[in-house]
Design a protein around this nucleic acid. Structure first.
Lengths: 231, 231
DNA sequence: TCCGGAGTTTGTTTCAGAGCAACGTTCTGT
DNA sequence: ACAGAACGTTGCTCTGAAACAAACTCCGGA
């Protein structure tokens, strides 16, 4: 493995307060690995033996029911920590992480977590902040799921993707990684059929433009209206 | 305020590793307060200026949508920490806490949190464990909400209440605090009408027995079957 | 003791969205 | 270049549960 460059970490929230030498230390103990689209980084229920940082790509965090249904709990973007079960004193991962696009992640053995927290100022703080945001976000999703009709949920899901990973293009804002109708149905607790119909109708209305695994939102404001947020 | 007894804390997970003198210290800085049924301990969006420990009673943790719909995210039982936004570097509470029955809670100013974490061994660990469990639990609820039909969700909700707060009686297991049909509908994202119908039909089948604000599960095993869990 | 409100029950109507089915299209590997 | 798989679209049917409506019961307070 080639030596990793310090600039990989030096701007990220959990590490930005650190000395160069500390970042070097952290990187020297990290394992870097590439994951191809569709492959799992770790799986629900397995031993939480490592924690991770996503350098490049996008992940889906997924839960599976006993009945075999899946749902996407959240997405991870570059720069975020994930698989941080050790932070919560868990010895097993509570969900599965799948690369939604080709991705690269660093990882460290769980046993280093306490040391990171103790030695690197700002690391604990930032990690727990991430956790707090994630908890809030899941509560939002739960509330939405419990109270909103399918159309609004799908609109919200799309907006979340756009906010988190949107890239500006000529035609509008494009979601930066492959998303299928089926993925969106697993984010919103509906069927791919319903998602397909909604997307078709929005396309007719000029709100989105989509091809296979690829969505561009051309009129975000109209989607916001549909989502029923804001006053 | 009368001096609080040390035995209040000495057996609880976050404090059980501590010296007597430390527990004394903690209690001396705590404020104890009674909340009557239906009153709020704190509200969503407000300054997270204190964190809490429930000594007696039961709480509902509730979120409200812009549209005015409410949903119950989780319940708090005696002995649990709550309102621990500071642990997640949040400066505002992400949800509202309501006393589901007459309750008593201790609280401390948020500014003491770092000190508790630093000085009291096991405190941080246990708090984060709680958080981890709560995160997992909410993910469960979300998954359930997204994939299961109403009947299963209501069965699950009832089982969760029973597991968390159930008290054995002659007729079966009784939920230890007042729960209305409406409450259950807010736990499951349905209407009180549907909950009422389900409960009636279960009563006919001898699975539950309920009067106003009061539910006894007489055949938990049959509820488990309905909930569709287990292998 | 009577009133009013909160909680519950039950009936009827309505429709969003799941389920099923069939087909079209674009990719991948050989 | 072809077969098969993965992804997407669309029409039709049917049902679970929301919406609407109306009473009934219990409880606390004046």
């Amino acid at each position: 493995m080639p030596k990793l460059d310090e600039s990989l970490l030096s701007d990220l929230p959990p590490f930005c307060l650190l000395e160069k030498s500390q970042i070097r230390e952290i990187l020297d103990r990290a394992v870097s690995r590439r994951y191809e689209e569709g492959s799992a980084i770790f799986r629900e229920g397995h031993d939480a033996d490592r924690f991770y940082l996503l350098l490049d790509g996008y992940l889906r965090v997924v839960r599976t029911t006993p009945g075999g249904d899946q749902i996407i709990v959240l997405h991870i973007s570059p720069g975020q920590l994930f698989g941080i079960a050790p932070a919560l004193q868990r010895d097993t991962y509570p969900a599965t992480s799948i690369a939604a696009a080709e991705s690269i992640a660093l990882s460290w053995p769980t046993s280093l977590w306490p040391e990171f927290v103790a030695n690197y100022p700002g690391f604990a703080t930032e990690s727990y902040k991430t956790l707090g945001q994630r908890l809030g976000q899941i509560q939002d999703t739960l509330t939405e799921m419990a109270t909103q009709a399918v159309e609004k949920r799908v609109a919200c899901a799309l907006l979340r993707l756009v906010n988190q990973t949107g890239r500006k293009t000529e035609e509008g804002i494009e979601i930066a990684f492959p998303v299928t109708r089926h993925d969106i149905s697993e984010m919103t607790g509906t069927t791919l059929h319903t998602v397909s119909r909604l997307l078709s109708s929005w396309q007719k209305d000029g709100i989105v433009q989509s091809t296979r695994k690829h969505i561009v939102v051309t009129a975000p404001h109209r989607l916001v209206v549909l989502s029923g947020i804001e006053g």
